[in-house]
Design a binder for these strands. Sequence first.
DNA 1: ATGTGGTTCCATCAATTGATTGAATCGCAG
DNA 2: CTGCGATTCAATCAATTGATGGAACCACAT
Lengths: 213, 213
Amino acid sequence: MASALEKARKDPESMKGKILTVARRIFGEYGFHGTTTRMIALEVGIDISTLHYHWGEKGDLYEAVVLDISKDLGQELIKVEKRIHGLPLQDRLAISIDLMTDYLFAHPEISNLILFRYFGKTREEAGLDFKVPEFTADIARSMGLAKDRKNVPPDVMMKVLGVMNSIHSFVCGENFFRPMVNLDRGTYIDMAKNTLKFIHIPAFTQNTDLTGA
Amino acid sequence: MASALEKARKDPESMKGKILTVARRIFGEYGFHGTTTRMIALEVGIDISTLHYHWGEKGDLYEAVVLDISKDLGQELIKVEKRIHGLPLQDRLAISIDLMTDYLFAHPEISNLILFRYFGKTREEAGLDFKVPEFTADIARSMGLAKDRKNVPPDVMMKVLGVMNSIHSFVCGENFFRPMVNLDRGTYIDMAKNTLKFIHIPAFTQNTDLTGA
DNA sequence: ATGTGGTTCCATCAATTGATTGAATCGCAG
DNA sequence: CTGCGATTCAATCAATTGATGGAACCACAT
């Protein structure tokens, strides 16, 4: 039943919506086990019982958060696809990287939660293995690397994963990487975009079958 | 005082060493907050008090684990550097990617813990911000992208971070990505290596200043 | 055997955490 | 105003979790 999530998405000023917004950020920063319902409730300025009243148990709220960021990401990918449609591959890559990087730096909790789901395990036996849409195949098709989202070759999937993970890494690693390079946020973001284009555009445009090398 | 860690590293059969080995894996899988001292003790087959006797409090054990994997990674990087010394850039990249990918897939908890430290926060106010060596600048020098480990330009740092994070991502994301591409482990690792070389070698070898594009 | 230092486990504690109950409170239609 | 459903909070629980004290155990030198 995703109607509770739909209502919260459509009305961010509602209590459900406010809790969801805060939960996105906190879960993204601390992960599932690192986040307590009290941390979220405190930040919203409500009691824990109010939180449970609206979203049920912690795992249910986490599920709602994951589905919420997944919807946002899916919508953004559609926007990007429309923007790059019909352009040559080099431009599709450059524009996609620029748009997606800006978007994810503006909503870092999306990258945070995606990486937490990729890399971290949860102690829960089940319950946290709900169905979440996977966009990798769609991106491959949108990039012109596959005819349809079914039967995308494994090597293409891996390449798309490589690109997306690179972006997520720079977004999620900002707190760690930025002091290393000693840049302000805007310069760091610009440099991340340039680095991403530096790395990925040559590979996809002037490639002469290195896959078997 | 890292002598406790040194003893455990030199004698993996000792109780200190056995606890450290298990703690590496569990912390790597579940993160700091997702791991309980009981989970580690249970896996080692000892009581929690025995664990605390050897390593003190949870944060101290975690610190030992992080420093432990950091030492392992540093040693491996030195091995790789010796292996690629003097070779042309393209070969240095290809061999480094092959060696590091094999190594990290053989010790995935290293990548896991590195990414957890990069991306996740901890509720502890302090105590978990101990000093850990940073290898990014050393890798830049070892790759011939900088003269010395001091004063590595920010854009070079970003490029090295991009490469390393790509490797870590495929290692840490195996449980998530491999079902997506439906490959056995060996084929997945081979394809990860090929993808990494496909992505990164063209960027560094046949690049004509895309950084300003 | 006796003592000694090092090691291990059982029992237990205090704090944290997820969750619930029941009593207010609020908005508002009748 | 009255009533009623929806919402919020204070109080409280049970389970988990990090941590400790003390008794037992073990190897081994004296």
